[in-house]
Design a protein around this nucleic acid. Structure first.
Length: 966
RNA sequence: GCCCCGGUAGCCCAGCGGCAGAGGCACGGUGCUCAAACCACCGACAGCGUGGGUUCAAAUCCCACCCGGGGCACCA
């Protein structure tokens, strides 16, 4: 490796002013200091402490560009070159925006609460605050070397009490509001309380509000609040000792972090009513400039499906013979006549009530699960189903299992009895936990019906020639594009209707009779918001002696994370499903028990001891970037409106550009949108969405080398020998992999900065490929970017004397053409985030200048300005050498002169039957007819045609003529 | 199983109906040099994953398949 390291080669004859790693380091350190000292990247706000002191210009009138990265989680391991890819990209873009007249807000904060920091703390015995702050300091130093143009005044850290007091404040806003479907927006809970109090809204049991106890009131309000605490089935992860949100559990039922098993457990936990926003979270995606893939993931996650609820009645057996409706959700109410059986989730609450004492006469042997009574069969099946992990359940998905409950429900349109089963292919968590089964037209129902010899009725006419008898089918027929058959009773007929018409007709019929209604169902669940962890924001909630919950007033914020010695979580054996969560904060009695005056005198309260998930701090940080030191408001409306307010180009408002990885598609990006919408509804922000344009950057991968046992070996120590790879004398294999410590292939940005300089690193990362694709780190290729900067330097400065060597002669026309072609291309590429091609065009122009032998001043200036966003340090240095005293951060980016964008003459290609036979030099203004005549007269063309008849001539002036002969 | 994204030179990638190449790495040669590095110049290397189709013309548009990466997955 060291042979290819220019900085390490003996510099005994190196010219004093050669652009090498040493000079680069010198230039870079100097400019970084200058930028810091001058506050070059401090962006003025229209209002508040960050507004310009003098009336130096109307900030609000200046076009803005708010450019953001997904902020990092400070890890003790330090950065590798993959981490800053996005940060460099946003910096290039931000610098470009600054040079095109924008007031640019660009900074970087730290997302520092959460599990990894706490786990690291427990493992090392260092308090999470200490280790986290050290990691932040280390990261700041690493990033500073890259010359990122951040407004340091706006950098926040989520663990700073002055930051999280506002996280808690927003929590209280959410807690103190409810979603009013009438206006389709959140409203203060006080308005709801007022309505209950004055009787304009009756309480569920009809009692007056004043008659309800404190607990009863809180219970009732809990049904409305957007943040509420409730006993619900949650994801309990004993290995981590905490509950988790659905979004943090992988498809195979394990924790995303740590990969521990996760169990369903019914526990009292804090929830956020994100489901209230399901519709808006889907529909507002249309206003956003996001990758389609991410929009799709969010739509799928929210999983909106339109359908109907339908009641099937079933006899009950708990105390007297009654009837009970079982409500199912279906997206295909049009197939109701084909519902020949029902299935409930094994945990469905009505199962016990409908199970009869004995099997009905002539019950099919296969339905009984080898049990003597239905109750026995149900119990046995439930036990088996409960013991199955999600993985097993999915593996078994092809084979349908279940058992008959012994009960028959009545199909409301056919009046026929249909057997009721329980089966684990029906999930309690979706819809109503009960389905009507239409085996002829649903794959799962078909498989189940085949396994249990259940009847099938065809009610949607097959269009593939399979016939109308399901007994002869291999699978269900589930098309939407057909007509309904076999679907009539004395009251209503769907026969002959298209699917969509039939849905409407049957839904209307059901609604009329009060046995069903059209409804929308979501896959999205409410967001589980509490964690049994130390290292997170405490909830600003206390409980009085009666257990009634009280929100703390704003004046008591922040509720600081208590300094304790024992911050370790209560973890359990990872398979111990029966364990229950315990909060670390509950161990500190002197913190938990607190004397407060909440308006009715000083009393003793107990604090909520759960903490918020690490998503909380990242749900709103863009707002704090806008107004970081505002002590009285979460964000000043004037500042929010300026940076984030809706405009014609941004109908929902939001950050102008947000760059980060795609892994947050349904986590951070969904949660942040939800919070933002609540704040919007409550009037705190004018924007409807937090992030207008989203861009997902790719990953930097690197070669991974493994020894014979398959263990990764340090990549830097591997040598290439005769096309193979060797480490410490033993052969190793090579593969592509994620860059990181565990695969022993991490490359630190510091190393590259030392060997080549930060500008080279920036340039290389930007030139590797399109920003949104993953690409391998090639240690050998970095030198290419380094050489470009050296050639650029030499085109402007003498390596021997350090003096300017540009020519003062005006540039000739071909040079101007090359220049303006480059300006035109680079401008478009930078604006479109196509940094790889922008770099190529800069190199192309520079190579032209090398070949030309001298660089006219005007070309040098333009080239330096164009390189500035990509390699700002060397550009500043050259700009100074060119005689400028100001930083070029705010210089105008060159604009192409269209005069030089058209070539004097173009080469026209003459094809004969698609093959190139001749070339003509023609003026760019030539017409099709002139070109055609010219082509047909060309001797080479005449020879190639060789007298064959010309059938057709296609002329595309000025570049092409195609002659079709024969 | 379903849905995205991608397959162009030894490698990373431009081109996205009209001459296969913008740029970089690696490679070969020449010059500079005592020699080398650096530098400069020159060069070779692909017919665009495969097979069909549309078109005067296809890397580019359409269809099917193969390979690689990602997402979802009994969601009624």
């Amino acid at each position: 490796m060291s042979e290819t390291t220019p900085a390490a080669t003996e510099p005994f004859r190196t010219p004093t002013f050669k652009y090498d790693a040493g000079l680069a380091a010198d230039i870079e350190a100097r400019w970084q200091d200058t930028w810091e000292k001058d506050g070059t990247f401090d962006a003025p706000n229209p209002a508040g402490p960050l507004a310009p002191h003098s009336a130096a210009g109307d900030v609000a009138a200046k076009p803005h560009a708010f450019i953001m990265d997904m902020f990092p989680y400070p890890s003790g391991a330090g950065l590798h070159v993959g981490h800053p890819l996005g940060y460099i990209a946003t910096d290039v873009y931000a610098r470009f925006q600054r040079m095109t007249g924008h007031n640019v807000l660009h900074t970087l904060g730290y997302d520092a609460f959460g599990l990894p920091a706490e786990q690291h703390a427990v493992a090392t015995g260092v308090h999470p605050r200490v280790s986290t702050e050290a990691a932040i300091a280390n990261m700041r130093a690493q990033l500073r070397r890259l010359g990122l143009g951040h407004d340091s005044r706006r950098s926040i850290s989520t663990i700073d009490p002055e930051y999280y007091r506002w996280t808690q404040w927003i929590f209280l806003q959410i807690f103190n509001s409810w979603y009013d479907p009438a206006v389709n927006a959140a409203r203060p809970i006080a308005e709801l309380i007022a309505a209950f109090a004055d009787g304009s809204r009756p309480t569920p049991d009809g009692r007056a509000w004043s008659e309800l106890s404190g607990l009863e009131r809180e219970e009732l309000l809990g049904e409305y609040r957007l943040a509420y605490s409730k006993e619900v089935p949650v994801n309990w992860c004993p290995g981590l000792g905490t509950v988790l949100a659905n979004e943090e559990v992988t498809a195979d039922g394990r924790s995303e972090r740590g990969n521990f098993p996760v169990f369903k457990s019914k526990l009292r936990q804090w929830m956020m009513r994100i489901t209230a926003y399901g519709d808006r979270l889907i529909s507002d995606l249309d206003m956003l400039d996001w990758p389609e893939a991410i929009k799709l993931q969010q739509r799928n996650w929210i999983g909106r499906s339109e359908g109907a609820r339908v009641d099937f009645t079933v006899p009950t057996h708990n105390g007297g013979a009654g009837q009970q409706p079982i409500t199912v959700f279906t997206t295909r109410p049009d197939t109701l006549f084909g519902a020949t059986y029902m299935v409930l989730a094994p945990e469905h609450e009505l199962v016990d009530a409908i199970v009869p004492a004995a099997w009905p006469a002539e019950t099919h042997a296969d339905w009984k699960g080898e049990a003597h009574t239905p109750a026995e069969a149900v119990a046995a099946y439930r036990a088996v189903a409960a013991a199955k992990s999600d993985v097993e359940r999915q593996v078994d998905a092809k084979v349908k299992t279940g058992v008959f409950t012994g009960a028959y429900a009545t199909n409301p349109v056919t009046g026929k009895p249909v057997p009721v089963f329980i089966a684990d292919y029906v999930l309690m968590g979706y819809g109503t936990g009960a389905i009507m089964a239409v085996p002829a037209h649903d794959h799962r129902d078909f498989a189940f019906a085949r396994a249990f010899s259940l009847p099938m009725t065809c009610v949607v006419e097959p269009t593939d020639g399979r016939g109308t008898d399901p007994a002869e089918w291999d699978d269900a027929f589930d098309t939407y594009d057909s007509v309904i058959v076999n679907s009539a009773n004395p009251d209503v007929s769907l026969n002959g209707l298209r699917v969509a018409e039939a849905k409407a007709a049957v839904t209307a019929w059901l609604t009329e009779r009060g046995i069903g209604e059209g409804t929308v169902n979501y896959r999205l669940r409410d967001w589980l918001f509490s964690r049994q962890r130390y290292w997170g924001e405490p909830f600003p909630i206390v409980y009085d002696e009666d257990g009634v919950m009280h929100a703390l007033p704003e004046s008591m914020l922040p509720v600081e994370v208590p300094e304790v010695d024992d911050y370790s979580p209560h973890t359990y054996d990872s398979d111990d499903a029966a364990s229950t969560p315990k909060t670390p904060l509950s161990r500190n009695e002197d913190w938990v028990s607190v004397r407060l005056d909440l308006g009715d005198g000083e009393r003793t309260y107990r604090r909520e001891t759960n903490t918020m998930p690490n998503w909380a701090g990242s749900c709103w940080y863009e707002l704090r970037y806008v107004d970081p030191v505002n002590a009285s408001k979460v964000v000043d409306p004037a500042n929010e409106a300026y940076w984030m307010g809706p405009t014609e180009q941004k109908p929902a408002g939001g950050v102008d550009l947000y760059v980060g990885g795609a892994e947050h598609a349904v986590l951070h990006l969904l949660y942040a949108r939800f919070w933002h919408k609540v704040l919007h509804d409550l009037g705190h922000v004018s924007s409807v969405e937090p992030f207008h344009k989203l861009f997902n950057q790719g990953m930097i991968t690197a070669d991974v080398y493994r020894d014979a046992r398959g263990f990764p070996v340090p990549a830097v120590e591997v040598e290439e020998v005769d096309g193979g790879y060797v480490w410490q004398g033993q052969p190793v294999t090579r593969e592509a992999g994620k860059m990181g410590k565990s695969l022993k292939n991490a490359v630190a940005p510091d190393t590259i900065c030392e060997e080549y300089g930060a500008d080279t690193l920036r340039l290389y990362e930007m030139s590797m490929g399109p920003l949104d694709v993953s690409r391998p780190w090639d240690p050998r290729a970095v030198v290419g970017s380094y050489r470009f900067l050296q050639r650029l330097w030499r085109n402007v400065v003498s390596e021997e004397t350090g003096e300017l060597v540009v020519s003062e002669e005006p540039a000739d026309e071909p040079t101007l053409r090359a220049l303006h072609k480059a300006i035109d291309g680079i401008r478009g590429d930078l604006a479109g985030l196509r940094f790889n091609t922008a770099v190529a065009k800069a190199i192309e122009l520079n190579n032209y200048l090398v070949k030309r032998g001298s660089t006219p001043r005007e070309v040098a200036q333009a080239l330096v300005l164009m390189v500035a966003p990509l390699a700002p340090h060397i550009a500043e240095e050259l700009w100074r050498k060119l005689g400028h005293t100001d930083s070029l951060a705010f210089a105008d980016f060159p604009v192409a002169d269209p005069v030089y964008l058209v070539d004097e003459a173009v080469t026209c290609v003459v094809q004969i039957k698609g093959k190139v036979r001749a070339r003509l030099e023609v003026p760019p203004t030539i017409t099709d007819a002139e070109l055609e005549a010219l082509a047909l007269a060309d001797p080479a063309v005449v020879a190639a045609i060789a007298g064959a008849p010309v059938r057709k001539v296609i002329a595309r002036a000025p570049k092409l003529v195609n002659i079709v002969t024969g």
